[in-house]
């Protein structure tokens, strides 16, 4: 599926208004807010993230719901792998996943 991962905005980037730190089940990564320019989220808001970009604001209940959908679909690990991969934290050294389930969906 086009993995859409729910996350909570914890902090806006003071250097770059288009970036924010999100928390996805305890993992924190920077995401791009450029697609939500018309209704910029603030810390505490929940968003759906796709390939490193927040693509829509959602309610907390819907965020919980979405995470459960991913778990039910067996995609939660792939989603967390994707989130951990944002920002090339390991210096561009990608983690080669295990087979067809790894990596993100377009």
């Amino acid at each position: 599926m086009c993995l859409a991962i729910p996350g909570k905005i914890v902090e806006l980037d003071s250097q770059n208004a288009l970036h924010a730190v999100v928390d996805v089940v305890g993992v924190r990564r920077k995401v791009d807010l450029g697609l939500l320019q018309d209704e910029p989220p603030v810390p505490g808001d929940w968003v759906l993230i796709h390939v490193g970009f927040a693509m829509s604001k959602i309610s907390e209940a819907d965020a919980v719901d979405q995470m459960r959908t991913l778990t039910m679909l067996g995609e939660a690990d792939a989603a967390m792998e994707e989130v951990r991969g944002y920002g090339l934290e390991n210096d561009g050294q990608d983690s080669w996943g295990q087979g067809p389930q790894s990596g993100n969906r377009s």
Binding site: V51, G52, W96
Partner: peptide, 17 residues
């Protein structure tokens, strides 16, 4: 060949390489 999880990270790869 590199896996990226976001097109923004491909951009970052270009900056760092």
């Amino acid at each position: 060949v590199r896996i990226v999880y976001s097109p923004a990270d491909a951009l970052k790869l270009a900056r760092t390489n």
